[in-house]
């Protein structure tokens, strides 16, 4: 609480950084519930078709999944470092780290493109004849796979857009060492995307 009042006293423009972060967290909770509902659907169907989920999961590329996990974890690191660098008044390092985060985000999407591309070329996409010929459990597995990783991928794309805006804001000194709540909130969003992947990865790629 003290911090809020102090921050308002220092800056001529009224600002509430704690309130801004709190608002961001409230938004993140709606995201958690959105994905939570899908994880719930996943849990119920996995409980119903354990063997068929196992068979379907063998189609997924564990190495690509692991690589994407490492890429996202590393992008989370560069995101956190970018914020710290800005707080330590090192604008250049902050820009470098933020650019690396965006680079890793693109790398993740490129991997995802190849991964999905391989599935499509094997005739495994929602509604395909090959998929519909499979058992119910496998159809549900791939439905959940495309829905959940697809929505996650959409979050990555939105994240890239937000981070690009932050890059411009830092370059133009709209986001600075003493006014960085925008960058912090973008970071929170980015870490959430990482957080969701932490659960998606073992649940889809590591069933044996």
């Amino acid at each position: 609480m003290n911090h809020t009042e102090n921050a308002a006293a220092v800056h001529p423009v009224h600002r509430d950084d704690v309130g801004a972060r709190m608002g961001m967290w409230l938004f993140l909770f709606t995201e958690i519930l959105l994905f939570g509902g899908m994880f719930l659907a996943y849990a119920v169907y996995r409980f119903q078709y354990p063997e068929q989920f196992k068979i379907a999961a063998m189609e997924l590329n564990t190495s690509l999944g692991t690589l994407n996990t490492v890429i996202l974890l590393t992008s989370s690191l560069t995101m956190a470092l970018s914020i710290t660098a800005l707080q330590k008044k090192n604008k250049f390092l902050s820009l470098v780290m933020l650019s690396m985060t965006i680079f890793f985000a693109f790398a993740f999407l490129i991997n995802k493109y190849f991964e999905w591309g391989a599935k499509f070329s094997h005739g495994l996409y929602p509604g395909s004849e090959e998929l519909l010929a499979k058992s119910n459990g496998e159809i549900v597995f791939f439905g959940l796979y495309y829905m959940m990783t697809g929505l996650h991928g959409l979050h990555i794309i939105i994240g890239i857009a937000i981070l690009l805006f932050m890059l411009v804001f830092i370059i133009k000194d709209k986001v600075t060492y003493d006014n960085h709540v925008k960058l912090e909130n973008s970071g929170l969003y980015w870490h959430l995307v990482d957080l969701i992947w932490i659960f998606l990865f073992p649940l889809f790629y590591l069933i044996h």
């Binding site: 989370s76 970071g187 659960f199």
Partner: peptide, 13 residues
């Protein structure tokens, strides 16, 4: 996964 998310939430976030 729970340990990993606890680390991300507590430190990174």
């Amino acid at each position: 996964a729970a340990i990993k998310s606890a680390l991300v939430i507590n430190i990174f976030m």
